Amino acid sequence: MDADVLVVGAGPAGLAVAACLQERGVETIIVDRGEAIGESWRRRYERLHLHTPRSQSALPGLRIPREFGRWIAKDDMAAYLELYARQHALAPRFGTHVDRLERDGDLWVALTGDRRWSARHVVMATGYSNAAARPVWPGEESFAGEIVHAVDYRAPAFYSGRRVLVVGAGNTGAEIAADLVEHGAASVWLSMRTPPNIVPRQLGPIPITIMAAGMEHSPAWLVDPVNRRLQRWTLGDLTRFGMPAPTAGVVAQARATGVTPTIDVGLVRWLRAGRVTPVAAMDRFDDGRAVLSDGTRLEPDVVIAATGYSTGLLPVVGHLGVLDLQGRPLVNGPRDLEQAPRLRFIGLSNPLKGQLFQIRLHAQAIARSIAREHRPA
């Protein structure tokens, strides 16, 4: 056996659970397919800041430095993770891609190329945004422009003076659309299949995700009417600017689809100014034009697919019966499943109160759970 616990993934979730386990004296190995701590954060688009405030985003055992401000920039988040790893003496084994997880008697075996890692417990912390979900649209070979996934979007300067169709009105799509307008894109269309619930980042001094923490377990019928009034009061009637009204409330939509509200960090301003144009869902390409579900034809120079991510777990654990039809863990947190004892998942949900806050809670709970079961070899 290589370790009592194998943690797969060295992002915030993997580092947090490893630190909590280490404090309880449980031997842990962390493996990660990347090359350095914070690597995925540094690769994200320049504008990105956390939507949860500093106080709600820290991992167990280390506050985020005050000088990083209230809303943490992506590079500062990467620096915080590096600091966190040093503080807890965590040394992930990088360049290690887990291809498959198997049972071998009472142990788990992770297959990584020509290497086998064995452990009594495994914690999968590979990230909510593990693999880009890039749709393939019929007729796209006729499109002479560029099609990129949002994961490859870095900075808006390249798109100055160009006509851009952003597909997807979640947080990433909305933020990219605002970024493009602010840096000189000629036209920006925002295509959506499901109209989002748009909410302000904060109400007065109170961050919206702190308010959402109290809604996490409340019935949708009780809190969503309040949410609708708050949305209307703070942002106004966005249908006047072409944004379709959402078909469900904030909590109802999040529970039905797993999609959290779109937090406004610039989009509403440009909707009101007519600089971002909401349009129907992207359907196909025809003769080089983008054709929408309502028949509208557009001629963008670039299409940016802000169409989300998948967990990427199917080839690794899909054969174990622990995933739902969308490839998400059936249990995400401290509990394990009967068919996969001592296998846990962390950081693979997107709750209303914020993913990092949920990671903090789950890391501590997982460490307590494993420590109770732990028996020295």
Results as ranks from 00 to 15, higher is better:
E39G: 08
W41C: 04
A3H: 11
G9Y: 13
R43G: 04
T28D: 06
G14Q: 07
E35K: 06
A19R: 04
L15F: 02
R24C: 12
G25W: 09
E35P: 00
L15P: 03
G11H: 08
A18D: 11
R24I: 12
V7P: 09
I30S: 05
A3F: 08
V31G: 01
S40P: 05
V7K: 09
V8K: 12
V8S: 10
E39C: 01
G14H: 07
R44N: 14
Q22H: 12
C20W: 02
V17N: 07
G11M: 10
W41L: 10
E27T: 14
V17T: 13
A10M: 03
A16V: 05
C20D: 11
G25C: 09
Q22A: 13
R33T: 00
Q22L: 06
T28S: 12
D32K: 01
E46P: 06
Y45E: 12
A19H: 04
W41F: 10
L6S: 10
P12A: 09
L15V: 02
L21K: 05
G14T: 08
D32N: 00
A16G: 04
G9R: 14
V8P: 10
S40D: 01
I29C: 07
A18L: 10
Y45T: 15
P12L: 01
L15Q: 04
T28N: 03
I30D: 09
V7F: 09
T28G: 02
G34W: 00
R43V: 03
W41S: 02
A13W: 12
R42W: 02
G9V: 11
G25P: 08
R44K: 15
T28I: 07
G9W: 13
P12I: 01
R44Y: 12
L6T: 10
Q22W: 02
G38W: 05
I29W: 10
L6Q: 08
E39I: 03
D32T: 01
G38H: 03
T28E: 04
D32A: 01
Y45D: 14
A36S: 14
R42S: 12
V8W: 09
L15A: 04
D4W: 03
R43C: 02
A18C: 10
R42Q: 09
R42E: 12
V7I: 09
E46F: 13
D4N: 09
G9L: 13
G25L: 07
G25V: 11
A18G: 09
A36G: 02
E39V: 02
R24V: 13
L21M: 03
G25H: 08
I37S: 00
I37M: 01
Y45Q: 14
G9F: 13
S40I: 11
G11D: 08
A36I: 00
I30E: 07
V26H: 07
D4Q: 15
S40C: 00
V5S: 15
R33Q: 08
R44D: 12
E35L: 04
E23F: 05
R43K: 11
